Simulated assay, not measured.
Amino acid sequence: MTTFKSPDEHEIYRRRGARNKAVGLCLIGVVSMIFAVTVVKLSAGVDIRGYDHTIETVPGAGQ
């Protein structure tokens, strides 16, 4: 008679869980880097208007 192990006890589930945690941490790292770059670029104080796919500074923003 074969005894079945619960999913918590089997080796493949432990490996899969560890891999999922590693991928999750990498994803959090990439999202954090994109957020940090966005915050740094926005905090530079230059107002940019680019609605028509041309970048121009907003008149009077530097005064």
Rank of each mutant, 00 (worst) to 15 (best):
I34H: 08
H10C: 15
R19I: 12
G62M: 15
V30D: 02
V46T: 13
T38M: 13
S6R: 06
V46K: 02
G62Q: 12
S43C: 13
V23C: 05
G62T: 15
R19M: 09
T38S: 09
M33A: 12
A36V: 09
F35G: 13
H53N: 12
I28W: 00
S32P: 07
V58I: 09
T38G: 06
R16K: 11
F35V: 13
K5G: 11
F4I: 14
V46A: 11
T2F: 04
G50D: 10
Q63S: 13
D8I: 13
A44Q: 15
I34M: 10
G62K: 09
V40T: 01
L27M: 11
I48C: 06
I12P: 06
H53D: 09
G24R: 06
V23D: 02
P59Y: 00
I55W: 15
A61P: 04
I34N: 05
Y13Q: 02
P7C: 04
T54W: 11
I12N: 03
H10K: 09
V39N: 01
V30W: 03
Q63N: 14
Y13W: 05
E9K: 00
K21L: 15
G62W: 12
V58H: 02
T38K: 14
R49W: 14
G60N: 04
F35Y: 10
G29Y: 07
R16A: 06
A44L: 05
S6H: 10
K5P: 04
P59A: 07
V46Q: 11
T54I: 10
H10R: 04
A61S: 12
E11D: 07
G62H: 13
K5H: 08
R16D: 01
N20L: 12
V37T: 09
T57N: 10
V31C: 06
V39L: 10
P59N: 07
V31K: 11
G45V: 02
K21R: 14
I48R: 07
D8W: 03
V31P: 00
M1A: 12
R14G: 01
R16F: 01
R49F: 15
G29P: 06
G50T: 02
V23N: 00
T54P: 00
G29I: 10
R16E: 04
M33Y: 10
C26A: 14
T38I: 12
Y51D: 10
E56F: 10
Q63H: 14
E56N: 09
E11K: 05
S32G: 11
V58Y: 01
V40D: 05
A18Q: 05
K41T: 13
T2S: 13
R49A: 15
K21I: 14
G17R: 04
F4N: 07
R14Q: 08
M33S: 12
V39T: 09
A36P: 00
A44M: 08
V40Y: 02
D52Y: 07
T38D: 09
L42P: 03
C26R: 12
V39S: 02
G24D: 04
P59E: 05
E11F: 00
L27T: 15
M33C: 11
T3W: 02
Y13M: 07
R14D: 03
K41M: 15
I28T: 13
V39H: 04
V46L: 07
A44H: 12
V31W: 10
S6P: 01
V37K: 11
V40K: 00
